[in-house]
Structure formats: C-alpha cells, structure tokens
Design a protein around this nucleic acid. Sequence first.
DNA 1: CCCAGATAGATGCATTTGCATGTATCACTG
DNA 2: CAGTGATACATGCAAATGCATCTATCTGGG
Lengths: 153, 153
Amino acid sequence: MSGQPSSSTVRLAAETWEALFRSQVAVMRRLQSAPAFKKMPAKEYDVLFTLSRCPSGKLRLNEINDKVLLSQSSLSRLMDRLEKRGLVARGVAPDDGRGVLLELTEAGLELQKTIGREHVRDIAELVAPALTPAEQRELLRLTEKLRASVSGH
Amino acid sequence: MSGQPSSSTVRLAAETWEALFRSQVAVMRRLQSAPAFKKMPAKEYDVLFTLSRCPSGKLRLNEINDKVLLSQSSLSRLMDRLEKRGLVARGVAPDDGRGVLLELTEAGLELQKTIGREHVRDIAELVAPALTPAEQRELLRLTEKLRASVSGH
DNA sequence: CCCAGATAGATGCATTTGCATGTATCACTG
DNA sequence: CAGTGATACATGCAAATGCATCTATCTGGG
C-alpha cells in the first residue's frame, strides 16, 4: 500500500527513461551503419553473440527471446534463417519435449568472432571518448540494476 | 594521435554498452506489452511524442529520423500512415523546397496526450522501484552525455 | 546561367515482422 | 490416468521494414 507517486517522481523516471532510450538509439544507429554489419543484420548477430556467451553453449528459444526485442514468431523464423545458413543447429530440449535447444555451429562461432572483434572496436570508439572509465562503470552498474529489477518480475 | 586503446578499456566500453542495451530491451519489452500500446505501435507513438515535444511544433522528416531507429524510407511510410489517419499534416519546408515539415493535428495531439499519460505511468512503475532518485539523476546525466557525444559527430 | 554533385524525401520490391492461430508437450486435478 | 488448462514453438498471412533507386531541389564552381 504505497501512496500516490508525486508528479516529480513520475517526471524524473520518465526523463531518465527517455534519455536512456535516446542514447541507445543514437549509439545503435552508428553501430548498425558500421561495416561490421554488412555481413549480417545486427539482430541476427545479437543472437549469435548471445549463444556464444552462454556457458553451456546451448539456449532455449524462449531464453534467447528474453534478451532480444523480437516477437516469438520473428525469432523462430530468424532461427530458420540462421539454421539454413548453417550457423546454428536446432536440437530437442532434454527435459522438455516441447522445447528447442539452440547451439552455434563451428561456422556460426567463427562468424560471431569475426564480426564481434570489429563490433567491439566500434563500440569502444563511440563509448570511450564519451565517458570516463569511472562513469562507464557507474553507467554499467545502474543499467544492470535497472535490468535486474525489471526482468525480476 | 592517441595510442592503442588497452584491452581493458575496450572491454569496459563493450560491457557498458551491452548493459545499457539489455536494460533498454528489458524495459521496452515491458512497455510495449502495456495496454497503452494497444491503440498504436510504440514506434508510431514515438513520432507523435517527438513532434509534441518540439517547441515550434514542426519538424523536418530528417530531424525526426535522428531520434528514431528507422530507415528514412520506413519513416516516410510511417508518416503516410499517420497522415492517412489524420494525426499529422505534411507541409512544405519554408526555406527548402525539398523538405517536408511535419506537424501534429488536433487529433494527433489528443491521441499523444492520451497514450502519453498512460505511458508515463508505466515508465514510472518500472523505473522508480529500480533506482533511487539520485541514481536516476545520475543515469539521466550519463546517458545524456553519451548521446551528446555520439550524435555530436 | 548552366552544369555536376549533393541532399530531402518518395517509391518499387523483396525480406522481415508481428498477430492470430495451430500443434505438440507438459502440469495439475480429481 | 483421463481431462483441462498452460506452455513452447511453428506457420499462414497481412503489414512493416530496408535497400536500391527515382525525382526534385539545392549548392558551388566555372
């Protein structure tokens, strides 16, 4: 039973989100136009990246869906494309017959690393001149805290 | 003539961007599924919002394009839709015969305000519990600094 | 003034996306 | 263990998107 949120509380939250969102747009626009994404659209790379980062190397479709801003059906078809190109392999989830377990192929891992190296350089060229290391660490902490709170429930 | 960026510099920048990006995805996913966006997709609302925020009330197509993650052609057609629904009006730019000047209609402004009120509440419900006001102000400052640096050049 | 190049925006077309729905598996209840 | 509802993913189809290209206007020499 919390009270009414004050108008200034609401406004601060809205302005914060607005700034976060616009900065994301500005950075993403630059990144997407970089040569790294001539080979493959950013959304597809993002899926390869997500798989490459996962300890077990395998992820369920719905786990990936949490990390990417795509509908379930769009992600399913994106996987079709990646599978057709031989970059990922679909498997059956061991404990759930409905589930699909996705894994990078050798070729998929190679492509991820190739694009990734270039992409990371592009990121650093945008972010490093903009914020001091201490500021970057603080931004990292705050966005991670926000993400945890939001995906928490 | 700056030297080689160190590996840790590059990594910090990459991790910072990654955290910013994922937090944006998590929040946006929640916001998009809110009832506020039953009436209209988020990208279309975003354009109405951008126009409503502009002091003169009028913006060029390419100015709007800087704020939104859409290709020029997609934005042009999004405007077709909004115009067809009577929410925005296209006009000719006074000093440039090639340019198009966009303006909200009365109906467009009303719809923006209706969705906006609801949307702002949704934002506050996600952001306010996640970060203290001081943290929000700091996040606002850092993302604004990043955006300014990136769109600067 | 004219012409070459640049810029703003519109349009044809193939690809991608999301909504609604379909199918298969799971989980719970009685 | 049959039955009901929920969950995971796939698919038909209409709509949205991006790339390449087109038209029109602007800009800067000569």
